[in-house]
């Protein structure tokens, strides 16, 4: 069995974000980058499947981006992926989801992966498009937003999370593509011995030009901070002063505090 896991590197979402120089994206200065949270579940699910299948599956982990993504690919290999592919692109943030999906499909097309895992969306762009588009381009079955995963006799049984906590149970024959929702599993922390082992694993670097033949379909006009609602009151300063003010406001504005 051959498995592909596609992961993205994103900034820590607790950061403060500023708009970049050309006004179309966030400025990367001073940001700490890490593996997209949803993708950690994708890596974990692939590794768990490998363990359940007696270690026979071979897991390739792929990412598109600048040099900094190499560290994240190594982390995925320390979690248990067998080999890494870094599709090098300094300007990956300028590619729209269609271009990213086309490049990944271009890489995967002749490799006969049985299962492909994605996170359901990235934390920065959040389009939720790339996984389903790759499935569509490759012409394979796909289930998105998966919170339950089981594999037996060549069939994946996946639980999709719907609004209000309802789940839809679906079955897919291989080859198939799954996009992972938070809570699907508990992503592991790499252990020191596994981090050392990962350093010896193959990490292939390939230029984006080898796989990307498509033009963008959606352009960014501008990026900007959200307009403040303006009506909200902001309290700052001494904790006890703020407590006093807030209790006063609640007495005045709500019937809850008397």
């Amino acid at each position: 069995m051959k498995i592909l896991v596609c992961i993205k590197q994103v900034p820590d979402m607790a950061s403060r974000f500023k708009v970049n120089g050309d006004g179309t994206w966030y400025d990367e200065t001073d940001l700490a980058f890490r593996m997209n949270e949803y993708d950690e579940y994708a890596v974990e699910q692939a590794v768990q499947l490998k363990e359940q299948q007696g270690s026979t599956p071979d897991i390739t982990v792929l990412s598109i981006g600048p040099d900094r993504v190499g560290e994240m690919i190594k982390k995925a290999m320390a979690m248990g992926c067998d080999r890494g592919v870094h599709i090098q692109d300094k300007d990956s943030f300028r590619k729209d989801p269609w271009q990213i999906a086309s490049a990944i499909a271009g890489f995967a097309r002749d490799k006969k992966f049985d299962l492909i895992f994605f996170g359901m969306q990235s934390q920065d762009r959040g389009s939720g498009q790339v996984g389903a588009m790759v499935a569509e381009i490759l012409g394979i079955a796909c289930a998105t937003t998966v919170v339950g995963f089981a594999f037996a006799d060549g069939v994946v049984t996946a639980k999709r999370e719907l609004e209000g906590g309802i789940r839809a149970v679906v079955k897919l024959k291989l080859p198939a593509l799954i996009t992972c929702q938070l809570g699907l599993n508990t992503p592991r922390y790499p252990t020191l011995p596994n981090i050392m082992k990962a350093k010896k694993k193959e990490l292939l670097a390939l230029p984006i030009a080898d796989f990307l033949k498509e033009k963008e379909l959606v352009a960014t006009a501008s990026a900007y901070p959200p307009a403040k609602k303006g009506t909200g009151l902001v309290l700052e300063g001494d904790v006890n002063d703020m407590v006093g003010k807030l209790v006063g406001i609640l007495k005045e504005k709500t019937k809850v505090v008397k």
């Binding site: 729209d96 999906a101 389903a132 588009m133 569509e136 937003t145 999709r160 719907l162 379909l217």
Partner: peptide, 22 residues
């Protein structure tokens, strides 16, 4: 939604139409 974000990219890719999410 869980229905729309699942179906929209399939339609967009099939039509090669630009998709704007959310």
């Amino acid at each position: 939604s869980s229905y729309g974000w699942d179906l929209a990219p399939r339609v967009a890719a099939a039509l090669k139409a630009g998709q704007v999410s959310e």
